[in-house]
């Protein structure tokens, strides 16, 4: 029993990623797919894997400026992700609104509604920058376990 508990502490855990598109132009989503699917970048080296269900996720990647239309869906989805979770804002849209700032149709910045932990600016950020952000998120996630 003690051994099992120690093993649990020693184990380098693997956070699973979950992607929320809150009205993004798909630029950042393509870069997220690139970091996962293209062997050149390969985010799975950090132990991360994209999962299809919010209930399996540890790190949430939010793209897009939070459209008024998808706002409630995004907030509900985010609530479904179990704690401890780390939220990463990918691209300038969720961080500040980017070029959509002050539009009537968007609710950016996202940190008005959700606690964001890591920001990855860029329009879109390059895959290596996303990997850098995910690496920072993993460090934050380890402290919260």
């Amino acid at each position: 029993m003690l051994l099992a508990r120690n093993l649990k502490q020693i184990a380098a855990r693997s956070p699973w990623l979950y992607r929320i598109n809150s009205g993004s132009c798909n630029g950042c989503d393509v870069e997220l797919a690139t970091t996962a699917c293209i062997p050149r970048y390969d985010v799975e080296r950090l132990g991360c894997q994209y999962c299809g269900s919010p209930r399996h996720a540890d790190i949430v990647l939010i793209t897009g400026p939070l459209n008024r239309r998808v706002k409630n869906a995004v907030l509900r989805l985010w609530e479904e992700i179990p704690d401890p979770k780390v939220t990463v804002a990918v691209g300038v849209c969720p961080i500040s609104g980017g070029i959509f700032r002050e539009s009537y149709a968007v609710c950016a910045p996202v940190d008005q509604y959700l606690p964001i932990d890591v920001n990855v600016p860029g329009c879109p950020p390059r895959p290596q920058a996303i990997i850098e952000g995910v690496a920072q998120a993993i460090e934050i996630w380890r402290t919260r376990l």
Partner: peptide, 14 residues
Amino acid sequence: DWHLAHAQARKYAL
């Protein structure tokens, strides 16, 4: 330079 990923605390310092 593209190393711009940062923690939320530094958001307005960038």
